[in-house]
Design a protein around this nucleic acid. Sequence first.
DNA 1: ATACGGTTTTGATCCATATCAAAAGGAATA
DNA 2: TATTCCTTTTGATATGGATCAAAACCGTAT
Lengths: 257, 257
Amino acid sequence: MATLHELSEFRRPLPINLANRPTASNCDDCGARHSGLCNVLSEDELEFLTRAAQRVSLAPGTVFVEEGEKAAYFYNINQGNVRLFKSLPDGRRQITGFAGPGYFLGLAAGDNNAFSAEAMDGVKLCRFSRPTLLAVFEELPVLERKLLNVAMHELVLAQQQMLLLGRKTAIERIASFLLSWAERLEICPAGRLPAPNAVMKLPLSRTDLADYLGLTIETVSRSLSQLKRDGIIDIPNIHEIILIRPRALSEIAEAAI
Amino acid sequence: MATLHELSEFRRPLPINLANRPTASNCDDCGARHSGLCNVLSEDELEFLTRAAQRVSLAPGTVFVEEGEKAAYFYNINQGNVRLFKSLPDGRRQITGFAGPGYFLGLAAGDNNAFSAEAMDGVKLCRFSRPTLLAVFEELPVLERKLLNVAMHELVLAQQQMLLLGRKTAIERIASFLLSWAERLEICPAGRLPAPNAVMKLPLSRTDLADYLGLTIETVSRSLSQLKRDGIIDIPNIHEIILIRPRALSEIAEAAI
DNA sequence: ATACGGTTTTGATCCATATCAAAAGGAATA
DNA sequence: TATTCCTTTTGATATGGATCAAAACCGTAT
């Protein structure tokens, strides 16, 4: 079995790292958090898959998937962050998700892309042409299994987001978001609460946050301020949140009665 | 190749019919619209799959999947309609989708179900225990491919719904819904507009509609009334809509500028 | 340090949709 | 036909969050 480290940037740029989210375990070799196919593929198989990919670097702000265009590729993020979104002609925007290192992208597409994708910072990724990856399935059925799991997990998240967007109040949306972001950063295991006073980086603008939560930036700001006033969170700076009382946050998020 | 008709209720109750939506083509044998695995599986394989299923009949109102419970089964609807939803403790409800004959259910689940499912009318379905179906994958990899396609299609729909819930106005939501429902009923091909004056059955209560669109029943009613006043639709009775000017509906739905 | 441009926060007001209330419609039953 | 019950529509009012406006903040350049 190849470890991810053997395929990592130290030896070869932009390794394959197919997963929908980083795992909780750190790499034995390099200490960083990796995940994905290295657990289920042999080195030969990884080699095979790697050859099917093109490596791409993107400048911040690059829109590399355009909603409505013919879906040509799947992507696997190796470095940086990406926002996925849909837009209306008058400029209204709904961010449908964020993708970071390890995330696999491009499942939400029939013949055409259902979403656009934009690099939030410097991004490096592997790009697979769709026909190529579908051909690879024949050789690596385990890949198909993996992708099905990724898609199923995305569906769970999508349904959570529908509940949030359709039925939660502003403050409930913010509270829900903060907790789900903590899970994403693996500050806590999925379904568990972070420890009190956990510190969390939040590398998103208020605009991104608003467009993800179906609110305006003003409402996002006001809700965060209120949680701070109530002593539930602290905001030492724009891109950092301290979850002082995660339990209270959770009660707001789940609308506990 | 077995046709679906050979496996249909005339010969054997509750045939397997794995698909996420009916196809546009009618069955040569019985005229009804079927779809799914019959196109890709041999009769032996269908037989194999059918043996892995339990047939179940459900009375209207039966909740047969409970959000948060251990995910034990996948389901394939053969008859009737199902609503999928998530709830908050205080009773707020978000319907995440509707499933009719031919739909495959249960992908939005990790260890636990992400949603609840309730029979809207008399429902007949096939139930597969999750371990069993996963075992079947070994024998029928094509099934996994099929399910991946179903999941990808669900993701496209989920992202559409996020845009609707996060960023569209009440009247835009109603217009979008009417057009997507027309597609679902195959009154028009996907991505195309229905013909002017197309008639459409709408077997949903205003409450279901409101909970699907993130609105109240009053706002749903008012928006429908306005579209009627404007001569864009007609509502001969509660469960029937005439799409008088689909083009106008589409302009509202897509917020054309 | 100061000035500048962008982002975020806070404040004041407005409005789309929710909420509350009542009337109208429709199906089932007496 | 009249009665009841439930759903839907319409009307009146309230409100959460949007919009408009200005101040505070923050990083960068001068």
